[in-house]
Amino acid sequence: MSDPSTYKFNHTMFRIKDPKVSIEFYEKVLGMEKFKESAGSDFTNFFLAFPSGFGGSNLSDDEKAAKMFNREGILELCHNHGTESDSNFKGYASGNEEPGRGFGHIAITVDDLDAACKRFDDLGVKFKKRPEEGRMRHIAFIYDPDGYWIEILANNRDVAHK
Rank of each mutant, 00 (worst) to 15 (best):
A66F: 00
F50Q: 04
F127H: 07
K34A: 14
N156H: 07
F35S: 02
G53M: 09
S60L: 08
T12N: 10
N88G: 11
F9D: 13
V159D: 11
R130M: 09
E37Q: 15
R101C: 14
G104Q: 13
Y7K: 05
D144Q: 02
M1E: 12
F25E: 06
G91F: 04
G147Y: 03
F54W: 05
F43K: 07
H81C: 03
M68N: 09
D112V: 01
A107K: 00
A115H: 06
F69P: 00
K118P: 05
T6Q: 11
F69H: 12
E27S: 12
K28A: 14
H161V: 09
I16T: 10
K64C: 10
M68L: 07
Y7G: 12
S52L: 02
D61Y: 06
M13N: 15
Y148I: 01
T6A: 09
E37K: 11
S60R: 03
V110R: 01
E76A: 09
V21Q: 13
L113R: 01
F120G: 01
F89Y: 12
V29M: 04
P131V: 03
D146P: 03
V110S: 05
D111N: 15
I74Q: 11
R15N: 15
S38P: 00
T109K: 04
H11G: 04
E84L: 02
S22W: 01
P145V: 07
Y148A: 02
D144Y: 02
S38I: 00
D146T: 07
G55Y: 04
V21M: 05
D158E: 15
F35M: 01
S87N: 13
L77F: 01
A154N: 15
D86C: 07
N10Y: 04
V29P: 08
T83M: 07
K90H: 08
G134H: 04
P19K: 03
S5K: 13
L75P: 00
S5N: 14
A140C: 08
H11M: 13
A93E: 10
H161Q: 10
K36G: 05
S85Y: 10
F54P: 02
P131E: 03
R130H: 09
F89C: 08
I23W: 02
H105E: 09
S52N: 14
G53S: 08
E63H: 08
F47C: 08
N58A: 14
K28Y: 03
S5M: 11
S52W: 08
S85T: 15
N155F: 05
F89G: 12
A140D: 03
S57M: 04
G82R: 00
L77D: 01
M1Y: 06
G91S: 13
E98G: 11
A93H: 08
M1N: 13
K28I: 06
T44L: 05
P51L: 02
K8S: 12
M136R: 09
R135P: 09
P99S: 14
S41N: 13
S41F: 03
F43V: 09
D122N: 14
F46P: 02
V110M: 06
K162M: 11
V110C: 10
D146Q: 05
Y7V: 14
F14E: 01
